[in-house]
């Protein structure tokens, strides 16, 4: 089934089309990607994803507006995935490579969001409380598509234009 929305995205010399691995959770803005969340109109509570998060009982009947969440936050905790998870995890490339996972407390929303950390960062370079920034990266590819996802990067690193 072809993806509903195709967005050209520059990853190396790839001729593949870049698409979101799952639609509707994040924007594909290359410079300033954002997670798409929900905010209860009168109460002000935030949710991510908009419709799949825990509910504030005070928001029953409240309108939930779609909002773009903060791009930065403080590292809440982190770990590694040293062994390949089962499907629907897709091993990118030919062989499984361990990866780092971060949980980041968003600056404005007081909400902790999981995500992989961009490749090349080890746990030795991380500590709870450091500033992290949202980026878009390739989760896995096939012949025709690069499937994109949000990841976390230490904010400093991104300012240096690396990663």
């Amino acid at each position: 089934m072809p993806p509903a929305e195709q967005t050209p995205y520059g990853f190396g010399m790839s001729m593949r089309t870049a698409v979101a691995a799952v639609e509707g959770l994040f924007t594909l803005d290359a410079d300033e990607p954002r997670l798409i969340g929900g905010r209860a109109r009168s109460r002000g509570s935030y949710f991510f994803p908009k419709s799949l998060a825990g509910s504030d009982p005070a928001c029953l009947g409240d309108e939930i507006d779609e909002v773009l969440l903060s791009r930065t936050g403080k590292l809440w905790s982190f770990t590694t995935g040293e062994y390949a998870p089962p499907a629907p995890y897709v091993i990118p490339g030919d062989e499984f490579e361990p990866y780092v996972i971060a949980a980041v407390e968003l600056a404005e929303e007081s909400l902790v969001v999981l995500g992989q950390v961009v490749a090349g960062i080890s746990v030795d370079e991380l500590s709870v409380g450091i500033e992290m920034e949202l980026v878009i990266d390739v989760l896995y590819s096939d012949d025709e598509h690069d499937y994109l996802v949000w990841k976390w990067a230490p904010a400093e690193m991104n300012e240096n234009g690396e990663g």
Binding site: S45, G54, L111
Partner: peptide, 14 residues
């Protein structure tokens, strides 16, 4: 943050 969610609840409002 709890299994199996991608995010915690927000404590911005309460």
């Amino acid at each position: 943050i709890e299994l199996p969610y991608l995010a915690s609840d927000s404590w911005s409002a309460v």
